Amino acid sequence: MNSLSKKLAGAVLSALLLATWSSAHAARDVGGVRFEDQLTLADQALVLNGAGMRVKMIIKVYAVGLYVPRRDASAVSVLNQPGPKSVRIVMLRNVSAEQLADSLVTGIEDNASSAEQAVLRKRLEALQATMLKVGEAQRGSVIQLDYVPGQGTHITLGGKALGQDIAGEDFYRALLRIWLGEHPSDNALKRDLLGVS
């Protein structure tokens, strides 16, 4: 193979790899919900690590996208990434505030030791009280769980803040473990959020 042929082959291979990467990491559609490849939080660009659907007893409950500073297929690495992070949940059916609050708190407790639960207890109560303000999460509602360093977990519904921010990176890490912990709410969804499906 002469020099020109090698350069041409290299250029073709590079173009193919770029096209493959772009299609794998472009905006994603999950259950009719579009998750953009990037968003900005606390003046930092975050990338879509993965997106998937929470299915319970064959019922599609919500679509969710996970945004982090850099993509990673390791749950441990994602959980320990410093900086802002965001979980965007789009409801695919109506869910009562009680069901929503209970599922979040139970998901945290399923992935936390007794000692961790004791440390998180007051903040779990704050999360539950905040989620109960939703009334009913209607189909199409967008719930965003954002972590802003130095500020804490900021929860919004349809862009409007719900309750006070909940302090501590440890709390947001516990929240992420609902989907990425050793006992995730949905194993297939965990793989989707890590981009390893």
Rank of each mutant, 00 (worst) to 15 (best):
L92M: 14
V134Q: 06
G65I: 05
L194I: 00
G10R: 06
L189R: 03
E136W: 04
Q151M: 11
L194M: 00
A73N: 15
R123H: 12
G159L: 10
S22E: 09
A63S: 12
Y62K: 04
L194Y: 01
P84K: 10
A11I: 12
Q164Y: 00
D43R: 07
M53Q: 15
A9L: 14
N49Y: 11
A115G: 03
T106Q: 13
V196S: 07
T130Y: 02
K85V: 06
P149T: 05
D37T: 09
S23E: 08
K60T: 10
F171H: 02
L176V: 00
S74D: 13
L132E: 08
L193Q: 07
H154N: 10
V90S: 13
A126F: 02
G181A: 01
I143Q: 02
E109W: 02
W179C: 04
V76R: 15
A27H: 07
N49G: 14
V64E: 12
D192Q: 08
A9V: 14
V30A: 10
A73S: 15
A129W: 04
R54D: 09
A137R: 06
L17N: 06
R191H: 09
G31R: 00
L124G: 09
G32V: 03
I155D: 03
A161W: 02
A129R: 12
V55R: 09
L4T: 11
K160I: 01
N111F: 12
I108D: 03
A126P: 01
Q44F: 05
R121L: 10
T153H: 08
V30L: 10
L66S: 14
K7H: 02
S114H: 06
K122W: 06
R93Y: 03
I89N: 09
D102N: 15
A115F: 07
V68S: 08
T130V: 10
L8G: 05
M131K: 00
D170R: 04
A115N: 05
F171S: 02
A63G: 11
L39A: 04
E109H: 06
Q44G: 02
V33D: 04
L66W: 05
G140E: 07
L157F: 08
V105K: 08
S96K: 07
I178E: 01
M57P: 00
D165E: 10
R191V: 00
G50H: 11
G10V: 07
Y62W: 08
G10F: 04
A24M: 13
L145D: 03
N111W: 05
V148I: 15
T153S: 15
A126Q: 11
A129K: 13
L132R: 13
R93Q: 12
H154I: 05
M1G: 13
A15R: 05
K56S: 14
L4E: 13
L16H: 05
P69S: 08
T40E: 09
A101V: 07
V196L: 04
Q38G: 04
A42T: 01
E125S: 14
R34Y: 04
V55P: 00
G152Q: 07
V134N: 05
S77V: 03
V78K: 12
D37G: 11
G150E: 03
I59E: 13
E98Q: 13
L66Q: 10
V61K: 11
S185I: 11
I89G: 12
I155Y: 01
Q44V: 09
H183N: 13
